[in-house]
């Protein structure tokens, strides 16, 4: 194994290779790698952020749906109450109206029957007088019984 000029030749070669690598190979490759690493890191961070946002949005949507459902239930309940109130009120009103009309009709009936009875009484009295007149005219002298007849007329 003889060490000779080759040794220095190889040293020079090595030096040039290292210099070249340092100058032209390492910087662009490293820059590309680092810039890609940054892009990937940013992408991952963005994805994580988007996932978080999606989760938030999901929970918000679920919240909204729950609220809407509660509101709807309340509205239906209120509507049911209102319906019951309306029906009850209509029933009461109908009963009151019926009673009122019945009272009016009763009053009318009462007054009509009263009038009829009055008319009937007068007619019966007239009929009785005229009947009595007819009987008496035949048997009793009007002049003779005038005082009696007068007393009777007064009584009627």
């Amino acid at each position: 194994m003889n060490i000779n000029l080759t040794f220095f030749g190889q040293m020079i070669s090595f030096g040039i290779l290292v210099w070249f690598t340092m100058k032209f190979i390492w910087p662009p490759l490293n820059a590309a790698i680092e810039s890609r690493q940054k892009t990937i890191a940013d992408g991952l961070a963005a994805a994580e952020r988007a996932r978080q946002e999606l989760k938030d949005a999901d929970s918000r949507v679920a919240d909204e749906i729950r609220k809407a459902r509660e509101e709807a239930t309340q509205i239906v309940e209120r509507a049911n109450q209102q319906y019951n109130q309306i029906v009850d009120k209509a029933k009461v009103d109908a009963i009151a109206e019926g009673a009122r009309q019945k009272a009016v009709a009763q009053a009318e009936i009462d007054s009509l029957s009263h009038q009829a009875r009055e008319v009937l009484r007068q007619q019966v009295a007239a009929l009785a007088v005229s009947g009595a007149e007819k009987i008496l005219k035949r048997e009793i002298d009007q002049a003779r019984h005038r005082d009696l007849l007068d007393a009777l007329a007064k009584e009627i």
Binding site: T6, G9, Q10, S13, F14, I16, L17, F20, T21, F24, I25, W26, P27, P28, L29, A31, A32, S35, R36, T39
Partner: peptide, 25 residues
């Protein structure tokens, strides 16, 4: 020794140098 190592060294820098020149992020 000298020629083979030189050719191989140049092969290395040529290969890596070309890739480095065209390197994209």
């Amino acid at each position: 020794t000298w020629l083979v190592s030189l050719v191989l060294g140049l092969l290395f820098v040529l290969w890596f140098g070309l890739k480095a020149r065209k390197a994209t992020a």
